[in-house]
Structure formats: C-alpha cells, structure tokens
Design a binder for these strands. Structure first.
Lengths: 231, 231
DNA sequence: CGTTTGAATCTGGTATACCAAAAAATTCTT
DNA sequence: AAGAATTTTTTGGTATACCAGATTCAAACG
C-alpha cells in the first residue's frame, strides 16, 4: 500500500505546472483528458484536483471542468491580508517559542537570500524565490504552532504565482532584503512588537507591489499568455 | 449532475456523529464498513473522509484506518489562537465592510442564541450550538473577505467538538451571552478596536474554559468514550 | 434569417471489481 | 512453551464501467 502518493504526486506536478505558468489561469483541467495523458486513472487525478481546489489553485465549478484559478486583485489582496495576520501571529509567537537554533536558521536563510538576490537571473530566480518562501515558512514553523504553520503554508502556496511575479522584480528585491533583515533582528532580540511591525510593513509593501503588477497587466500586455477571458 | 452532494452529505453526517460523540475520538473510520452501513459505495465515502481530514476532524494514517481526531490540549489551544487572530481580523474588517443588514443579521443570531440559551436542554443544545457557530460565521462573512471566511469556517469546524463541550456548560453559556452582546455593540458602532478587544476576550475565555475541561477529563473519568451525551 | 428545440456529446458522480501492502493470527520449528 | 516464519485477513489504492445532468450545436420550424 502506498498511502496514496499517486494523488499527491499528481497534485505536485499540476502545482508546478500552474506556478511556472505552463498551465495558464483559466485553463480547464479535464479529469478525463489529463488522466489519459498522465497514464493514470481518473480516480487519483480526481483526488489531486480536490487537493488543489482546497489550496485555492484551481476552482471547482458545478457541472463544469475545474479551471486553473485566476484570482482577481481583490482576491489576492484578501489573501495577503489573511497571510499578514497569520504571519504576524507567527512572528510574535516565535519570539517566545523559537529556539536559538531556529532563529539562527532563519538568519541563515535570510543571508542566503541576500547573497543570491543581487546576482540571480533566469532559472536561479526560482531558487531565489524558493529561499524567500523558505524564510517565511521557517518563521511560521518557529511559532511552534503546527496548525498555524500549516495554514500559513497553504496561503503561501495559494499565492505562489503572484508572489513569484512580484519577487522577481529587481526593484522589489532590494526592499525585500532589508525587510527580511529587520525581521531577523526583531527575532534575535525577541521583540514581538517589532517583529509584528516589520512583518506588517513587509506584507503591506507586497500588497502595494502586487497592485502595481495588476495594473500593469491590465493596461499593457498580458503576462499570463492566455487572453481569452480577461473581461 | 449533482455537484457531488453525496460526499458532502456523508461528511456532514459524520461530522454530526463526531460532534455528538457517537463517534468517539480514536474510533476508526473504516471506509468499507461505513460504506455498506450507509448504503453507498466507497468512492463518495472516501471523499467525505478526505474532507473531514482536511478539516482536521479525522486523522489519516498511512496504511491504517483513519481515526477520529483526538487533539491534545496544546493542539486545541494552538487552533484557538489561530482562530482568534482570524476572528479579530474578521471583526475589524467587518466594521468597515459590513452592510447594516449584515450587522442586523448578526444581532438577530445573537438574540436567538440568547433566547435559546436559558432554556435549552438535550437535543436543543445542538441547535443552540449551531446558532453560536452561525454567529461567528456571520461575522467572518461580514468581513467581505471570502478567503478569510473560508479559513475561519475550517477552523471552526475543526474544533466543533471541543467548542461544543465547552458551549454546553451552564456556566459558560452565561458568559457567552454577554460577550456576544458586546461584540454586536462594537459592530453596530463600527468600532474596530472594541470589536477586536471583545473577540479577544471571548476567545481567550474559551481557551481558559477548554483548559479547565481538559483538566477535568484528565482527573475524573473519561468523558470521551461513548456516553454520547453530556448531561 | 432568426429562434427554438432536441439529440449527440462532454462533463463529473457513483458503484464495483481487483490489487498490493501491512497487521494479525496461526502454525511450525526449536 | 517461546519465537519466528508464514499464511490469512483487513486495509486502502487504483482502474474501469456506467449513469445523469449540462452544454452545445444543428436542424427544423416560424
């Protein structure tokens, strides 16, 4: 018995396809076609789709093919607001609960991010981004509140694509570096108020940046490669 | 096509069974047995179990029957902490975003809860409790942040049983009534700080109460095994 | 030529049968 | 009698077949 890795495996594959843009927002995910494509039956694929739906990456529609989610600006902002609340709580708890080793690990991630941030280009951007995500994930875990860490991870996953588009920008990278550093300092001094404030600033800036990105997309060309449904 | 009500329906039934204690924490949920019991096939039952697993009501174990979750005190407290953060954010946003009609609906729920709270006994307790849950859910929805409302609902569901055991107590019912009233007042005056503080107090009290319940259970006999109804 | 209606087709939902892995029980060995 | 190995049973995972609702496209009618 395999504890159903297949469904999780398929979900992982679809996830990556979505995040890297191979599956564009709005694209349908027909469980029949995809099933034969991947050489598996509908049953596990079906489960995979449900998993992604729970994560918010695909939308289930009654009596229609599920489609890759194409969140509106409002939806993204809504999500970031929740993420902000979760992450502030994480940071505050981490000040109390985290071990020195955990904080050191967070600092390490921050420094690796810093080192890569200045030079990264092309495929290395994905690595840069993954370190960024790992940084935030590490803080959530340092809260020693598994439920919180899990929910936080779910929100992070949900916004992978949007955050990726944002994080890749040169201009944003500069800001992110100093803000991460500030957060780490707050953790090292075990100052919940400061950590909370820094995280607040960090994610508020993210909202601003994402808003700008959306406006860019509206006006100029479509970054997502599929036009077919933008109003 | 029915948009898969069956799985949701089964999930709902199992949820209620768990809440009422008919299915005790630690009980296995064998997909074969339950399927024939309910007269449905394993497929939708399987989906139902996954739904409950996502909600945290049952635990999936590789190569073993899923079992009804039996969260430790720490896990419950962790969850309530997250719930508190989510609900405070909901309340604050609701002050800005909610329509007067929505706030009126929340008041209505509060008053129905109040009316039932004094007399309810036996099966009516479940109704009382459902109104309680509806009250909190309505606040989350009034934030006009669907992602927030959804995550909030998930956490509420996850702690159904614990909250039920707490809410049913006579002593707690008194406190809940006045705290709900305070929250409603804060919403009606559109005072985010007050709403946040009241919700904070409300859920902090819940933590205290749940802690007490756990200690009771530890010392005395075990409430969880199958006496299907509490006083 | 436009509208309407009905049938073909595509969708996901459900039931069932089969398979592999892991526990549990039994038996064989020492 | 105790332990180990094997067989039996129980579990969930997967594939497949069938069903019902929804969409859509085309033909027939106005």
């Amino acid at each position: 018995m395999t504890a159903s890795p297949l469904a999780e495996q398929i979900a992982q594959k679809l996830r990556r396809d979505i995040l890297r843009g191979k599956l564009a927002p709005g694209d349908p995910i027909k469980e029949r076609d995809n099933a034969v494509d991947l050489g598996v039956s509908r049953t596990p694929l079906r489960e995979a789709v449900r998993i992604l739906a729970k994560e918010g990456l695909v939308q289930l529609r009654p009596a229609r093919s599920p489609i890759v989610a194409d969140p509106s600006l409002k939806e993204v902002r809504d999500s970031v607001m929740v993420l902000k609340a979760l992450e502030i709580l994480s940071g505050e708890l981490a000040c109390r609960e985290a071990s020195d080793a955990e904080i050191a690990e967070i600092r390490d991630l921050s420094e690796r991010h810093l080192a890569l941030s200045e030079t990264a280009e092309g495929d290395a951007l994905i690595e840069l981004f993954e370190i960024d995500m790992a940084f935030h994930t590490a803080i959530a875990r340092a809260s020693h509140n598994p439920a919180l860490a899990e929910t936080h991870a779910a929100y992070l996953a949900r916004m992978w694509r949007q955050r990726y588009l944002s994080a890749v920008q040169r201009r944003a990278r500069e800001r992110v570096r100093t803000q991460h550093e500030n957060i780490v300092r707050g953790l090292e001094t075990r100052d919940p108020a400061r950590v909370g404030a820094e995280i607040d600033a960090h994610l508020s800036a993210l909202i601003v940046n994402l808003t700008r990105l959306f406006e860019l997309r509206e006006s100029g060309r479509d970054l997502t490669t599929n036009e077919k449904d933008i109003e």
